[in-house]
Design a protein around this nucleic acid. Sequence first.
DNA 1: CGGCCAACCTGTGCGC
DNA 2: TGCGCACAGGTTGGCC
Length: 281
Amino acid sequence: MPELPEVETTMRGMAPMLRGETIIRAEARRANLRIEIPTDFADRLTGNVCERLTRRSKYILLHFTDGLVMILHLGMSGKISLYNKASDSLPEPGKHDHLIWETAGGLMMFNDPRRFGLVTFTSEAELPEHKLIRHLGPEPLSNQFHEARLAAALQGKRSPVKTILLDQRTVSGIGNIYACEILWRAAIHPKTLARDIRAEQAADIVTHTRDVLCEAIEAGGSTLKDYAKVDGELGYFQHQFKVYGRAGESCLKPNCGDDIERIVQSGRSSFYCPCCQPAPE
DNA sequence: CGGCCAACCTGTGCGC
DNA sequence: TGCGCACAGGTTGGCC
């Protein structure tokens, strides 16, 4: 489900309830998600103090004072629910609430119907070389992601440019929705072969990647304000997409208005404007 | 190595 | 109302 902006928003939403707080109770309500849930899930967390939260690509990282790092991925359908003990009524966990952890002031649940999400542990020292982390490419909002780097990744590749953007080794955190949004903004057809992308187009992709992700994070941040008062469900927020999911509707570029089309590329939907993003020969 | 596809799961919405 | 199918925002292992 969530791509970088949703994961960032989720992490920011969790932080106030967790930062500097001791986990007083934790529970794993099933043995596995996409991978096995550590059997010592509750033991490793209980009594531990969460020092800070960070995000790497689509992974949320909880850093504890004893050097433990909890790696959380929301998969396709993962959500975090937050409950403030002072103001919210605490619910009974439902069918898809797989993980629960609690501080003095709050309770959090990880809900994931499709179970493509995961939770695992590592240590601060081993984190950079962790199997799930080490292959990840640059963060799209960091200065490690730039035109030359993208151009190098596109160089000579026969895959469509969209496939390269979805490859987390190229740049980490872009998913199907934002790949569509980026290519629409950059006026590049999703089927364009990576090797045919010109230098200025690569530069456009970098710019539009930053813009669209930043705008979405801002939109998520404003959603968060509404959540602050009530029982919160993090991991999903309504953002206005310009092209994703708009098949048959009008292109929103000024003076265009052509109908958005949907095609399938390696099993995933791509949405594009046939006028603004002309097909490669 | 490059590139494609199935597989992992459940839920939802649609056409008949 | 029920049934079957298509589809959903991620990742990875296996195959050619």
